[in-house]
Design a protein around this nucleic acid. Structure first.
Length: 679
DNA sequence: GAGCACTGC
């Protein structure tokens, strides 16, 4: 589905017909289907059912409410139905946002079953590439990003009578922008005497005052949950090695607890988890006979889907399941039957430094809110136990909340979106948590360089180019690259490259088969860099009819590859809408690189006499990431897709360019940069 | 010289 900001999309779905073929990641465990009577009984057994009448009475009165509910309260599944059943907001659609696609899809599926309605009729959902709604749809689940896209065509959200922002405590960038958008829409609709907009914020037990204050002192309604009691233990002494502490704790539990009690361990990343998996398996092999067997499973996002699914399978009899996970198990994946949580208290998270434009991925302490979220994973079905591998004093000094994402990311997309949403002044936008002035300035500077905005007397104005850029579901530098591509007659190739860069890596690198991977990849490698190499891979994939077997043989992630072609066709549709001429450069790669230089000139780096690289923009020392095909090469000048600071500051996904092309792309900018080198 | 938390349009 493509999107034109001037004309919201027509509903393409006809109930009964399979509207889409692609599903990136299906619901993790849909659960057994229940017969209708059992389902109604289950609805009535939820804690929320007992306060249904009061809840409806209050929500009928209020323009705005904050609902705090523990997990298992049934707020997300029941409140939209209660509103509908009580004829609240029937004049329009009840929209419920979710931070994740899977959640939007599985909630809509579940509630359409509860309402005994075919999915896509009374109850439906809208996520990227899938619109399972119709004219009849009154309860609609959608990702927060999707509601934001809809707001571009209709900032007053006129088709909605109620907007419920669920999982608000997660504070995704999209939810944070939506706070401001729904607040403004509500006010404006009231002033214009239009259908009122009811706003409901749903959250776990955090941030209550912040939400209520932001929405002009909206009342807070508390819902009882059905969380089982969890005992929390701290270490007596501070642990210098959390991996060692985790290992000891796991085997202590293993030797004492019944085999049916599964353990979930929170660690920080793939490498650490793989190493720990191996260590646990080795130790488990040599345990005494009295001990149960142990099944150890790693869990992280880049693990192939099939291996992720293994965590839902019960372990064989007399075997204990031990899952070593990143924070993916905090929110995205819920594993049933966990009795013990072991929390190392650390997380790998991204920070953004607006001055250097640098994203730093670093292991850091979790927040209290995160610690409680992890703890909660032990009490989903029965009482549980949580071992925190840090002292109570250490817990007390943790930050109360995780810093919202909007204060940790590059704001270029957000600022562009606010402009196209016709926010009166993006510099004074009513954020619940304001991003730093530095970050705002850096974002506007970037949009200015890309030609998306102009600055006139302290005002930031959207240019026609900027308006087009905002229509693409991409970072501004990518939409700019697409929009300049006709000048270089290579739009077909740029669409492919941008699509490849905007999804998870299509390259699968199992460490055990390194030599095989290298041998197979050789045939695609271009000395011009990663962009052209990826283009070669996509071309081969397409020429061979998008063959899954071929992908497996060549260590290509077929699922991500199909997603690339889906993204590509979405971007292509948007180009067609703007009458962008779509040509192919065929065998010529020079003009493709020239085009990339024109769109991504801000991300340029030059080779220094000592053999190292520095960025042109801030003269930050950088290195070529080991995953790049240029890792062993030393081109004089490159553009990179992103900088990532781990053990060093790495450039990822590089393309060899001429310095002349960069000068042509932004003469003034480079003259300025050159001057600053000389001084 | 040697590596990658998690989402989403």
């Amino acid at each position: 589905m493509s999107y034109d900001p001037e004309h919201p999309p027509a509903k393409k779905f006809k109930p009964g017909s399979p509207a889409f073929h692609l599903q990136r990641r299906g619901p993790m465990h849909p659960g057994p289907r229940k017969p209708p009577v059992a389902m109604e009984l289950q609805r009535r057994s939820l804690p929320i059912y007992h306060v249904r009448a009061q809840l409806i009475a209050q929500l009928r009165q209020l323009d705005c409410a904050v609902i705090i509910g523990e997990t298992g309260s049934g707020k997300t599944t029941q409140i939209p139905q209660y509103l509908y059943e009580a004829s609240i907001g029937r004049q329009g659609v009840i929209g419920v946002t979710q931070p994740r696609r899977v959640a939007a899809i599985s909630l809509a599926t579940r509630i359409s079953e509860e309402k005994k309605a075919e999915l896509g009729k009374l109850v439906g959902y809208t996520v990227r590439f899938e619109d399972i709604t119709s004219e009849e749809t009154k309860i609609k689940f959608l990702t927060d990003g999707m509601l934001l896209r809809e707001a571009i065509g209709d900032p007053l959200l006129r088709r909605y009578s109620v907007v419920i922002l669920d999982e608000a405590h997660e504070r995704t960038v999209h939810t944070d922008v939506l706070f401001g958008i729904v607040k403004a829409a509500q006010k404006k609709r009231r002033e214009l005497g239009k259908l009122p907009l009811k706003v409901i914020i749903m959250s776990a037990t955090m941030d209550v005052d912040l939400f209520s204050q932001y929405f002009n002192g909206a009342p807070v309604l508390y819902l009882e949950g059905r969380q089982h009691p969890i005992q929390v233990f701290y270490t007596k002494q501070s642990q210098s090695d959390y991996l060692q502490a985790a290992l000891v704790t796991v085997f202590q539990i293993h030797q004492e607890a019944p085999a049916s009690h599964d353990i979930l361990v929170f660690l920080t990343g793939q490498e650490e988890i793989e190493a720990m998996t191996k260590t646990c398996r080795d130790i488990a092999k040599h345990l005494s006979d009295g001990c149960p067997q142990m099944v150890v499973m790693p869990l992280y996002a880049s693990l192939p889907h099939s291996q992720q699914l293994r965590v839902f399978h019960g372990a064989p009899k007399d075997h204990r399941k031990v899952i070593l996970s990143t924070n993916i198990a905090e929110t995205s994946i819920t594993i049933p039957g966990i009795k013990y949580v072991v929390d190392a208290g650390m997380v790998k998270a991204k920070k953004y430094n607006p001055e250097s434009g640098l994203e730093v991925l670093a292991v850091q302490r979790i927040s209290k809110a995160q610690a409680w979220q992890r703890t909660g994973r032990a009490g989903r079905e029965d009482s549980g136990i949580c071992y925190r591998l840090y002292t109570e004093d250490e817990f007390e000094v943790l930050e109360k909340m995780t810093i919202p994402e909007i204060q940790r990311c590059n704001l270029a997309s957000v600022m562009l979106q606010l402009l196209v949403l016709r926010v009166p002044n993006i510099l004074t936008f009513d954020f619940m948590s304001k991003p730093s002035p530095d970050a705002v300035r850096a974002a506007i500077e970037q949009l200015d360089l890309l030609g998306a905005v102009e600055r006139k007397e302290d005002q930031v104005i959207l240019t026609p180019l900027g308006r087009k850029m905002a229509a693409f579901p991409l970072e501004p530098k990518f939409s700019k690259t697409i929009l300049v591509s006709p000048k270089f007659h290579c739009t077909e190739e740029i669409l492919t490259i941008v699509s490849l860069l905007s999804v998870d890596s299509v390259l699968h690198n199992p460490p055990a088969k390194r030599d095989e991977v290298q041998a197979s990849r050789k045939k695609f490698i271009s000395s011009e860099g990663d962009h052209i190499t990826l283009l070669n891979i996509y071309r081969a994939f397409k020429n061979l009819g998008k063959n899954k077997e071929w992908c497996r043989e060549n260590f290509i992630n077929a699922r991500n590859m199909l997603l690339v072609s889906e993204v590509r066709s979405q971007l292509r549709d948007i180009c067609i809408k703007f009458s962008v001429s779509i040509e192919s450069s065929r065998t010529d790669t020079r003009n493709i690189r020239q085009c990339l230089a024109h769109g991504m000139f801000i991300n340029a780096a030059e080779l220094q006499p000592d053999g190292t690289y520095t960025t042109v923009d801030t003269h930050q020392p950088v290195a070529i990431h080991p995953s790049s095909v240029l890792f062993h090469c030393k081109p004089a000048c490159v553009i990179y897709n992103e900088l990532l600071h781990t053990s060093k500051c790495y450039m990822r996904d590089l393309c060899v360019v001429d310095t002349d092309w960069l000068f042509e792309a932004a003469p003034e900018y480079f003259r300025r940069k050159l001057k600053s080198v000389k001084t």
